[in-house]
């Protein structure tokens, strides 16, 4: 089989995209489109729900149904789309500010509800579009345009958050590993219940230059050095893990999703009982 290009799922007349040179968003978009193709999904059955931010512009380049919403609320909209028509394949595309900071509450509750949809959070450690301010995933002590004296806040681990809240499938890859990313997205799309893929991605215009990574390639090297598979990461003792992050599939379970649970409740009600 020829390699999937994903072109059928891209709005080709909108390309080239608007993202900066070296930005990882294009790699994530390519991985998403290739995952759609390898799963042979019909474009009319896909709804891409986006928030606001650099990665939130992804719907501009997708030839599938799309709903570009407000900052942080993509998962709430996606929840309504999915419950209204459970046959649809719903993906929520959000950044770290969007999906894990202003929209953190919806992330927690989508995972808790185990809503059968896929969240793809591109984490570039800052608010790139508005000039590189710190977000809830900016590492402690990192420099951004609103932490010029270094970030006094601590960062969220998005994947640990999703695991604790009850997501069925959680994975993390970097945009330096497009093929792995595509495979994780494919698995997420096929997973029952709430699935989340965190794509760590370089912000080569804002975050990198402020943190001693002047060139895009410096950031890619940094991603490759810091992202470790479980086989390596888990062997490190806690203090040594500082500054590194685990990649690969982090959670994979098959607890019943929201729609399944709702239908079971509906059947119980129709049978006339609470049991």
């Amino acid at each position: 089989m020829a390699h999937a290009t994903g072109m059928k799922y891209l709005k080709q007349d909108a390309l080239p995209h608007m993202w900066c040179a070296g930005c990882g968003n294009g790699v994530v978009l390519g991985a998403l489109a290739r995952a759609f193709e390898e799963l042979d999904l019909a474009p009319e059955d896909i709804v891409a729900v986006t928030g606001i931010g650099c990665w939130g512009k992804a719907d501009d380049y997708l030839a599938v149904n799309a709903l570009h919403t407000t900052h942080g609320r993509a998962l709430a909209y996606a929840t309504g789309v999915k419950a209204s028509n459970p046959k649809l394949r719903v993906v929520a595309l959000m950044g770290d500010g969007d999906g894990a900071t202003i929209g953190g509450n919806h992330l927690i509750h989508s995972a808790r509800r185990n809503m059968p949809l896929t969240a793809i959070i591109v984490n570039n450690y800052n608010y790139g579009m508005t000039g590189g301010q710190f977000s809830a995933t900016t590492p402690a002590n990192a420099f951004t345009s609103t932490s010029v004296g270094s970030n006094p806040e601590r960062a969220f681990d998005i994947c640990e958050l999703a695991r604790a809240a009850g997501a069925n499938y959680v994975a993390r890859e970097t945009s330096a590993a497009g093929m792995k990313l595509k495979n994780r997205i494919k698995e997420a799309l096929e997973a029952p219940g709430f699935s989340l893929v965190e794509a760590i991605s370089p912000c080569t215009t804002q975050f990198g230059p402020k943190n001693n990574m002047r060139r895009p390639v410096d950031m890619f090297e940094w991603l490759k050095a810091k992202g470790l598979p479980a086989s390596k990461y888990d062997k490190m003792v806690h203090p040594e893990q500082e500054g590194f992050f685990k990649t690969g599939v982090l959670v994979n379970r098959d607890a019943p999703d929201f729609i399944t649970r709702y239908e079971a409740m509906r059947s119980r009600m129709q049978a006339g009982g609470r049991e």
Binding site: L67, T69, T70, R73, L75, A76, G80, A83, S84, I108
Partner: peptide, 16 residues
């Protein structure tokens, strides 16, 4: 989980 989500959900549901 809140009214922001409620409004988002009904918009998504209507479009679907």
């Amino acid at each position: 989980e809140d009214e922001l989500a409620s409004m988002g959900a009904i918009i998504g549901a209507s479009l679907a």
